[in-house]
Simulated scan of single mutants.
Amino acid sequence: MTAQDHTHVRPWRHIERRKCRKIRVGDVEVGGDAPITVQSMTNTLTADANATINQIRQLEEAGADIVRVSCPDEESTAAMPAIVKAAKVPIVADIHFYYKRGIEAAKAGAACLRINPGNIGSPARVREVINAARDHGCSMRIGVNAGSLEKHLLEKYGEPNPEALVESALYHADILQQHDFHDFKISVKASDVFLAVAAYQQLAEACDHPLHIGITEAGGRRMGTVKSSIGLGSLLWAGIGDTLRVSLSDEPEEEVRVGWDILKSLGLRHRGVKIISCPSCARQGYNVIKTVETLEQRLSHIETPITLSIIGCVVNGPGEALMTDIGVTGGGNGRHMVYAAGKTDHTIDGDKMIDHIVGLVEKKAEAIRAEKAAEKLAAE
């Protein structure tokens, strides 16, 4: 058992997820006992199929399980067949004001339709979109947003609040269910952390639908990451959330990376190298900050879950190394101790350390992949 495996059996690390129904977005399961999925959205013009496909490729490499694209016009839905065919992950068509785009996107092969029912219009139009989704095997997401609540709810409550968001969500869920359509998930997003979290908490108690969670319009990379981590972390810790998007004013791939980091920090999913590192101080035996920055870049291609501790001195280094697959503790005379599976293994010169660590991580990743392949072959 590795140090990483050992952390999984500790009861105080366990998060009991909310029980809900399971749906499918293409070949990806959402809800129930399925892993919590990470989503993002392209910001290219969807009508430019090549640019959109290239961005989807980058999102796939970053770890996106599902990708959403905007469909504001006919040119966008006309590009959807090529986009869907090229993508390795399910594509969600984002529909706002024009119900016909939803029908076109379903016919074009979208795996899911994201609708904001309050913007689409009459019940008849909503019904047409439902029929298209059913006919073409699409799931749906009811996307309620504090910034686009129905007029009568704003008049009733005076402002966007948790009750208004939940009432809107349940009303539109009821419409889908009245049409015997049940393959849908719900989001009740707001840019205010307190409002979003309270709305999701109320919605989680009121229904058993899968929930897509997010703090919408969270801001730039730093502030948006902080807000999303607080909001999504609070919900996930409470077992709420089946799929998520981190909304940043940044490149879409960064949304995916932050989403994964949130899940990894809570032990909910594991992908890539998780680096545990100290903030550095005068005791450090090497430049910790620069080392971590370089390692994050050079190890970004690793998908296999591996833990790596980078600690500048012997105060906390040995203890942290006990809990990681590979560890490094700064030492004197330019030589640093390397740990493997929590045990001291060998020393390395500082000028060779980064290349050496990269090699160790890549070797460890290959060994884990080979072990899993052997287990899969034996099971077959």
Rank of each mutant, 00 (worst) to 15 (best):
A51V: 10
E60N: 08
E74V: 13
A79M: 05
T77E: 03
C71W: 01
V38M: 10
E29Y: 10
D65L: 02
G32P: 02
V30Q: 07
L59M: 15
S70K: 05
E29D: 15
I83S: 06
V38N: 12
I23Q: 08
A47H: 09
I56T: 11
I56R: 09
I23L: 13
K19Q: 14
T44K: 09
P35N: 10
P81C: 05
E61I: 10
A47K: 15
Q55T: 03
N43W: 01
M41E: 05
I36G: 11
A47R: 14
T42Y: 01
A62D: 04
D48S: 13
V38Q: 12
V84M: 04
S40A: 11
T42E: 07
G32K: 06
N50M: 13
D27F: 05
I66D: 03
C71L: 09
L59Q: 12
K85E: 14
S70N: 10
M80Q: 02
N50L: 14
A78Q: 13
I23W: 01
S76R: 06
N43K: 13
H14I: 10
C20K: 12
V67K: 07
Q39D: 07
A47F: 01
Q55G: 08
A82M: 12
R57E: 12
D65E: 07
P81H: 03
N54T: 14
D48K: 13
I36M: 07
E75P: 00
K19E: 14
L59P: 08
A64M: 08
P35G: 10
G31W: 01
D27P: 09
T77W: 01
G31T: 08
L59C: 05
S40M: 07
I53S: 10
G26T: 04
V25F: 05
N54E: 15
G26M: 03
H14M: 12
V38A: 12
A49N: 06
N43I: 07
S40N: 11
V67Q: 03
I66P: 02
A51I: 10
V30H: 05
D48L: 08
G31S: 08
A51F: 07
S40F: 02
E74W: 00
V38P: 11
P81Y: 02
A78S: 12
R24K: 15
T37I: 00
Q58W: 00
K19V: 09
A62G: 09
P35I: 06
V25I: 15
D33L: 04
I53Q: 10
I23N: 09
V38L: 11
V69A: 11
D48W: 05
I23H: 04
Q39S: 06
I66A: 07
R18Y: 01
T46E: 11
S70F: 00
E75D: 14
E16P: 01
K22S: 15
K22N: 11
L45V: 05
M41C: 09
C20H: 10
A49Q: 06
N54S: 15
R68N: 01
C20Y: 00
C20S: 15
L45F: 05
K19F: 00
E29V: 11
V38W: 06
P81S: 06
S70P: 00
E29R: 13
S40P: 11
P81L: 05
Q58F: 00
E60L: 02
I23M: 03
A49S: 15
V38Y: 04
I56Q: 11
N54F: 03
V28I: 15
M41I: 06
D65T: 05
